[in-house]
């Protein structure tokens, strides 16, 4: 089952990357980042079957960090929305080269 789980994990990660690269809505991009974190979690759990329970402990930490990241990231999105009245990332090009 290790190989199958890693295949699913790789597919989820690739789809998440595609979403971050293709979507312009900041919130959906953020959702796709969560999808990538989730794919990595799945790989950790699959490998923890064979390597030890530490993989699951690490997934626990990843979930906590994801929660903190979601809170701060969404606060940033709200703050950006107040300034620009949109969440489309094409409009935030101040820091672009």
């Amino acid at each position: 089952m290790l190989t199958e789980a890693l295949v699913v994990s790789a597919l989820l990660f690739a789809i998440g990357t595609l979403g971050v690269l293709l979507r312009r809505n900041a919130i959906v991009m953020f959702l796709c980042i969560e999808l990538q974190l989730n794919a990595v979690n799945l790989a950790f759990v699959a490998l923890s079957r064979y390597v030890g329970i530490e993989g699951q402990v690490f997934v626990f930490f990843v979930m906590t960090v994801a929660a903190a990241e979601a809170a701060v990231g969404l606060a940033i999105i709200i703050s950006i929305f107040r300034h620009f009245r949109t969440v489309n990332v094409d409009n935030f090009n101040l820091l672009k080269w």
């Binding site: 190989t3 990357t17 595609l18 293709l22 979507r23 312009r24 809505n25 790989a43 094409d90």
Partner: peptide, 23 residues
């Protein structure tokens, strides 16, 4: 709001390549 650009495709191919390598 899907935006298909030329830079996205090689990056996606790179990610897919890494995933295939992992598998």
């Amino acid at each position: 709001d899907l935006r298909l650009t030329l830079t996205a495709l090689p990056l996606f191919a790179l990610t897919g390549g890494i995933a295939a390598l992992l598998i």
